[in-house]
Design a protein around this nucleic acid. Sequence first.
DNA 1: GTCTATAAGAAGATAGAC
DNA 2: GTCTATCTTCTTATAGAC
Lengths: 210, 210
Amino acid sequence: MTIEAEPKAPRTDTRKRILKTAASLFATHGYAGTSIRDLSQELGLTKAALYYHFTSKEDILAELIEQPVLAIRGVMEQEWDLTSSEQRGLFVEAVLRAMSTCDREVVAVFKDPTVAPLIDQSVAMTGVTTQLAVRLAMGLSGVDDPADVEPRHLVRAIAAVGAGYEAANGWRVVYPECETFSDMDLKAISGYVTAVLDAESPDPEVEARS
Amino acid sequence: MTIEAEPKAPRTDTRKRILKTAASLFATHGYAGTSIRDLSQELGLTKAALYYHFTSKEDILAELIEQPVLAIRGVMEQEWDLTSSEQRGLFVEAVLRAMSTCDREVVAVFKDPTVAPLIDQSVAMTGVTTQLAVRLAMGLSGVDDPADVEPRHLVRAIAAVGAGYEAANGWRVVYPECETFSDMDLKAISGYVTAVLDAESPDPEVEARS
DNA sequence: GTCTATAAGAAGATAGAC
DNA sequence: GTCTATCTTCTTATAGAC
């Protein structure tokens, strides 16, 4: 019995090829902007072939985001005291690590406006980035109820999450050969986030708002 | 001749109503995720009525983004020495001011992946946020050619622009009654951007990358 | 596992009545 | 300025041959 590199069914990587290509197209053209036809042409397959591997377009999306969404939810369900800058940094790193459990192009899909409602149905999780921002803002305000968050802290947290999200997302463009984040990378990105959270820039004027 | 509040043709605000509603829907569901049918139903009109006011769906989009894109391009075409943090702050404020020339919901459209290629054709401007990031990264690296930008500066600038973009975009959610940015608001947002640009967080490891 | 062929509907867009 | 009706193309998805 000699060693054979490809045993007998090496072509069943089609499923993975589909997921990989779908992630790339969704990231580039958006979920709604990518049709099954686009995807099948890019793969050199027919539409029908895709429907052999997946039951629907949404099914492809669901499989793409399942892992990272579950991982992030796991991190969010832990107990976190986010009132200190250090703890917030660790929290952000944990989230980034959870996000790294998926193909890197999938990250771009998280903010696709046409994807959010679909995530709700399948995995029961609304606006990942929004939830993160609210969580961090609660830490900044030192409150336990999202409703008690100070608006100025919320915009600040939204900006901070935006920095982290774009950094993680831009990583694949700037460092195409980098497959996963190193610890240094994570430190760098979470550094951007905490920089915004802890910035001594003037907070927006609160007086003029009701 | 007495003063009459509504002279005689007050219903020609339909065009503006369309633009307003389109901006809202595009921001919420994305450009590709919003159909002419969705838009007409939201407006209580028929599709044909929309096509009386605009020649195409893309025409609506073009009119929405024309002003801010021209304004931002105007700022970008100026001479800027972005090697100092102060100058970068002023640059960012100028860009934000230019962005404020449009309906606030239009801001969300700028990052719609299905919109970017359409902007290219109509206004000849690719990836507004990417261009901003490159410009700021050039300042950080102290170079005049985008090709000479250091990767670590580019990711940092991408994160910084992300912070500013999300702050500007999140503003309308956190402060719904706020129509335009005050000077204090602009200072706050540009503060988030410069916080990332000037953060002393560890830059990503450069060694492992080619 | 992949194909051809096709259904059923929604998309963007137009013609012409009122 | 808005309507009804229609056209064409594209969409997701299925049936059945190979």
